[in-house]
Amino acid sequence: MPDVLAGGIFVLIGGAFVWGALGYGLGTPLRMGPGAFPMLVGATVAVLGLAIIGKGLVAGEVTSFGAIPWRAVAVIVLAVLFFGFTVRRLGFVPTSAVTALLTTLASSRVRLLTAVAVAAGLTVASTLIFVVGLQLRIPLWGPWLGF
């Protein structure tokens, strides 16, 4: 039920913002507080979400989602989080290599040797483009490796 799920997400996020906005002070129309605008918009999102749920229930169509690439979802999220967390600590080169290797494994068809080759190639390419070419100021090797 995609409509119910989508509507649910809207209700959840909209509601959370409304709840949070109440703590920031609504102010008066003349001097709107920091909470007024998010509350207005959050309520709109939640109401629209309810309408989408309602429409989905009325229509009652059961459409399946199709395949979800769980492996790709997990691996790519992990790769991106890894990059953000370690780029300062491990340095540019090892972080890029691990991120690229992890990402390559998202494809269910990839062979390990290909993955290593792609990761190595991308690490060299990104180091050349971003650090050498664009003078990005990120240390190549980080403090975790004793640099």
Partner: peptide
């Protein structure tokens, strides 16, 4: 298989 890791890495 080469293209999408490149997109992810460069994007990060």
């Amino acid at each position: 298989q080469v293209l999408f890791p490149m997109i992810i890495l460069f994007a990060a």
